[in-house]
Amino acid sequence: MNTIEYLKGDATRPASEGNAIIAHICNDIGGWGKGFVMAISGKWKEPEAAYRKWFKSKEHFSLGEIQMVQVEEGLWICNMIGQHKTISKSGGKPPIRYEAVEQCLEKLAAEALQRNASVHMPRIGCGLAGGKWEEIEPIIGRTLLNHQLKVFVYDFK
């Protein structure tokens, strides 16, 4: 079975050859403006615009769903709805929803296999979503690694 490759660096700059998908967690209330999404928006406008359009449409916009947005040749952003509300709107309870993250990553695995792509991410769900890496890491193992995908996790320098 593959293992996660941990790197120091910027998750918006995939450190591998070939097709790549950058995955990150979004909330289920249409909010975009804090955390890792700011790094994404600093490089590409399409992921935020697509997410906001998706939210407005309400079409399959719910926990456990993903949206693939191509930003360059061979590079996609995967908007994954794995967070219920935001920390400021959740009454102090961490907004991460591990079951939704697992559903998202299973769908992402299918997309990565179809595109012959590696998967790149920060420590998803562990920032503003309030999740714990010791919960997220095994989910990555059951989903992405179980499909023999190459997974890179970045810790920003």
Rank of each mutant, 00 (worst) to 15 (best):
H60L: 11
A109Y: 01
S62C: 11
C78G: 01
L128M: 12
A110Q: 10
G127W: 06
G82P: 00
P14D: 13
S16V: 13
E46S: 12
I25R: 01
Q83P: 00
T86K: 01
M68V: 10
I25N: 07
F152A: 05
D10Q: 09
W76Q: 06
K45L: 14
K53H: 11
I140V: 15
G9S: 06
G92P: 01
R115Y: 02
G125I: 11
I96C: 04
I4H: 04
D28S: 12
H84V: 05
G131P: 08
I40C: 03
K93I: 15
K45N: 15
E106R: 10
G91I: 10
H24Y: 12
F36H: 07
R97I: 13
G42F: 08
Q114H: 10
M68Q: 10
M121C: 08
Y51C: 04
F36G: 01
I40S: 02
S41F: 07
E5P: 00
I22Q: 06
E99R: 12
G64E: 08
M121A: 14
W76T: 05
E137N: 08
I21D: 02
I139L: 15
I81S: 00
V119Y: 05
V69G: 03
Q70W: 03
G42Q: 05
K150W: 02
A112K: 08
H60C: 09
S16H: 11
Y154C: 04
G33Y: 01
H120Q: 01
G30D: 09
G127P: 02
K43G: 01
K132I: 10
E73P: 08
E59P: 00
W44N: 06
A50E: 09
A100T: 10
Y6F: 15
Q114N: 13
G131E: 11
C78V: 04
L145D: 07
I139M: 13
S90K: 07
G92F: 07
E106D: 09
S118L: 08
K157E: 15
H84E: 13
A110P: 00
A15I: 02
I25M: 14
E111M: 11
Y6H: 13
G141S: 13
G125T: 11
A110M: 05
R123I: 10
G42S: 06
P94W: 12
M121F: 04
A100S: 14
K56F: 10
I21L: 14
Q114V: 05
G92Q: 06
A112I: 12
I140H: 01
L113A: 13
G141H: 13
Q148S: 14
G127S: 07
C104A: 06
A15D: 04
K43Y: 01
R123H: 15
F156L: 13
H120T: 03
L144A: 08
A23M: 11
